[in-house]
Design a protein around this nucleic acid. Structure first.
Length: 315
DNA sequence: AGCACA
């Protein structure tokens, strides 16, 4: 074992010298992306009866997602998805390209960069509901006491974490202000109270993810990560159902099942890059699993794969 | 990058 033992406070990732002057979330964010840069994806190939909410639910897990809208006036629905940066938009464009939106109609999406940015009317369009992306909770809490209550929102400045949960992030995302500088009352949103989070995060590269599903695949855990530490972190997440750890040659991966797609998505977002003390690696990489928990990879003829005939749900 | 389980 390299390093002879894990001292609990022997961090692998030392946050950069935190600027003592932590500008507490400026109301006016000076460095928003340039107004002229296109950061909107144009989406066609949507089924004629698509709902705005369906598109939003598909998009919301994508890094940097801000808002989406569908124009129903044309022959076929035209979707627009706004992201916080052009990079995020382009990554999303590639991720969505040819995606089978609807299993029944087999309709595949076609994406391009939009000609102009989606204009988000305040309070209208389906704005990314949660405290998403840049507003995620990044606390200095100690999750090892499983079951501890999430600390009150702790405006401790996030150390430079290079990656908002995916794709290549050559530089840290700009501190995007989702409320565009005007005050919005913090109304109850769809997202439950802040999650207990890992104590620290490190940039992680996640350029190949799978379609959202209720099971997460956790990679980059290191070969001798402590299972209880993994469990301690995930089992307190809302919607957690079960997990299975898989030891491999020089690596360990883990599968975690959640009640539904929403809770999985939330954890996918919030714990992306979380650093476990026992994993002498950087941050964990969280992806959606290729197969949902309890679903065989090589099912035969799509039938009889359920032992007791109980219905399963594709989520 | 590594995707199991019945």
């Amino acid at each position: 074992m390299a390093g002879a033992g894990m001292h609990p406070y022997h961090q692998q990732w030392v946050p950069p010298p935190a600027p003592a002057v932590a500008p507490p979330v400026p109301v006016d964010t000076p460095n928003r992306p340039p107004a002229d840069e296109i950061r909107t994806v144009f989406i066609t190939g949507l089924p004629g009866d698509v709902k705005e909410r369906e598109l939003h639910n598909l998009l919301r897990w994508l890094p940097g997602f801000e808002a989406s809208q569908i124009n129903f006036k044309a022959e076929q629905p035209m979707g627009f998805a706004l992201f916080s940066t052009a990079q995020h938009a382009m990554a999303a464009k590639d991720a969505l390209q040819d995606l089978e939106f609807d299993v029944e109609t087999k309709s595949a999406l076609h994406t391009e960069m939009a000609k102009k940015n989606l204009f988000v009317k305040r309070g209208v369009a389906s704005e990314s509901s949660s405290i998403d992306q840049s507003k995620r909770l990044r606390t200095g809490g100690d999750y090892t006491h499983a079951g501890y209550a999430a600390p009150p929102f702790h405006p401790q400045p996030t150390p430079v974490w290079g990656n908002p949960g995916g794709y290549i992030a050559p530089h840290p995302p700009p501190p995007y202000d989702p409320y565009g500088g005007y005050q919005v009352p913090q109304v109850a949103m769809t997202t439950p109270p802040p999650l207990p989070a890992s104590s620290r995060y490190a940039p992680v590269q996640n350029n190949k993810d799978n379609p959202p599903c209720n099971t997460l695949f956790i990679g980059n855990l290191g070969e001798n990560v402590n299972e209880e530490e993994v469990r301690g972190l995930f089992s307190v997440q809302p919607g957690f159902k079960q997990m299975k750890i898989l030891r491999q040659e020089r690596n360990t991966v883990c599968f975690i099942e959640f009640e539904d797609l929403n809770s999985a998505t939330t954890v996918h977002q919030n714990l992306q890059g979380a650093v476990l003390t026992s994993s002498g690696r950087g941050g964990m990489r969280i992806q959606f699993s290729k197969n949902p928990f309890g679903r065989r990879k090589d099912f035969i003829n799509g039938a009889a794969s359920e032992p007791n005939g109980a219905p399963t749900y594709q989520q």
